[in-house]
Design a protein around this nucleic acid. Structure first.
Lengths: 157, 157
DNA sequence: GGTGCTAAGTTGTGAATCCCAACTCAGATG
DNA sequence: CATCTGAGTTGGGATTCACAACTTAGCACC
């Protein structure tokens, strides 16, 4: 009762993730980073994003520890920065994979999936699944979402 | 070269998912729906979201097939609509789980996880993992993200 | 040592979105 | 027919977004 929505959100992992990742374009920038795009002009060309917005997104991704700036130097050019995924950024693979699976299933494009996850060494297709600690696979409907220890009172419904 | 960013995005599952889910508040509304919240006033109270924005989000979630309106009737009250997850909405469990795991790992709140996924029957904790088709678990760095058959040319980088 | 080239941004303006508070609306009940 | 309640509208000011034009910093070449 005495907890505000704001306090509750501060303790919710989803909300905290979305603080960094939830703005328009952000996850698309991350997706392009996974495809190997690193430079401002390439992000811009591939996404069609306004340069000021791209600047802002790259900045929050760097501040949030998802990307890091790395200097590079093309022949005959001055030194500039490019943006590469950090360890934390690389772990967003599951987030993107979840969106890909959901989008392919429930928002089909009619052209087949545009993104696929495969095992790196064999190119075998891969899927996301819930596993118990002892390695059994669970179907999504066998999994319950519950408020954890960090949650504040106020049971829903 | 002849493909615009707009066309590429139309074929990207991530982008198509984000068309429905990518606006501010949307995934938080879905999270609350997973916790069992169904009514306008409860979404509003738990999230602190402006009523006009909530109206808009519920509308796009219904149109996108994530929620469905269901009439209910409290004693002494007139009939109203509540919002419940559809089958497609239920499948967003993996998306939320991915955000929860990433947020708990890389954006810790200091209070412990506020959301946890457990096996429904045993309350045993659960995690997300990549599986090959024959059931082997892969670490995220063994999984590659590649452009699939529905993607348009223009290799990145 | 000044000129041109290029990638990476800024700046400026208008449109769209968000936030907040106050108000409306529709029916069940007295 | 007056009241209560939950589910929205409506109006405004502030923020964010989009699009285009402009700026900037250094390397190369002369």
């Amino acid at each position: 009762m005495s907890t505000t929505p704001r306090e509750r959100n501060a303790r919710c992992s989803v909300a905290r993730s979305l603080e960094i990742l939830g703005e328009k374009w952000t996850l698309l920038v991350v997706r392009e980073a996974f495809f190997g795009v690193t430079r401002f002009a390439d992000f811009r060309a591939r996404l069609g994003i306004a340069p000021d917005v791209l600047t802002a997104r790259l900045e929050t991704l760097v501040e949030g520890g998802v990307l890091e700036r790395r200097p590079y130097r093309d022949a005959g050019q001055r030194q500039r920065d490019e943006y590469v995924l950090t360890e934390a950024g690389g772990q967003l693979k599951t987030v993107l994979a979840a969106f890909v699976e959901w989008g392919d299933e429930y928002r089909p494009s009619g052209f087949g999936p545009s993104v696929v996850y495969v095992e790196e060494t064999t190119a075998e297709p891969v899927r996301l699944a819930f596993l118990t600690e002892d390695g059994r696979e669970l179907q999504p409907d066998e999994v319950a979402l519950v408020r954890g220890p960090g949650a504040l009172g106020d049971a829903a419904a």
